[in-house]
Design a protein around this nucleic acid. Sequence first.
DNA 1: CCGGTGACTACTA
DNA 2: GTAGTAGCCACCG
Length: 109
Amino acid sequence: MDEALVERVRAVVLDIPSGRVLAYGDVAELAGAPSPRLVGRILAEDGHDLPWHRVLRSDGSMATHLVHEQLELLRAEGVLADGERIDMRRYRWTEPLPEREEPQLGLWD
DNA sequence: CCGGTGACTACTA
DNA sequence: GTAGTAGCCACCG
């Protein structure tokens, strides 16, 4: 594996704030990975000490062998699931957002 | 070299 | 909404 890439992916995942999530494709883009599949592979091998649960599929679903644990970890951060799916429009972390604040959190349920 | 297999996605129907 | 398909990339047999 490309160790430099592994470190970039790990850095991106570490940057995801608690209570927000990213898709594998997002992480791939931010870390310069050639394919989202690589991100999944990297997390499987070197993601044990990362907040890996904040990374999921672009449609808000997740890998079958992880779904239960992942949902529980996310729930502990306030990321609530609709069944076994996360509402990506609501929880997806799009950018560092240095200035812009989230406009009134609870207004649109 | 080839085909199968994943912690994946985007497009089409 | 769901299902099928093609593209994706590293690994393994």
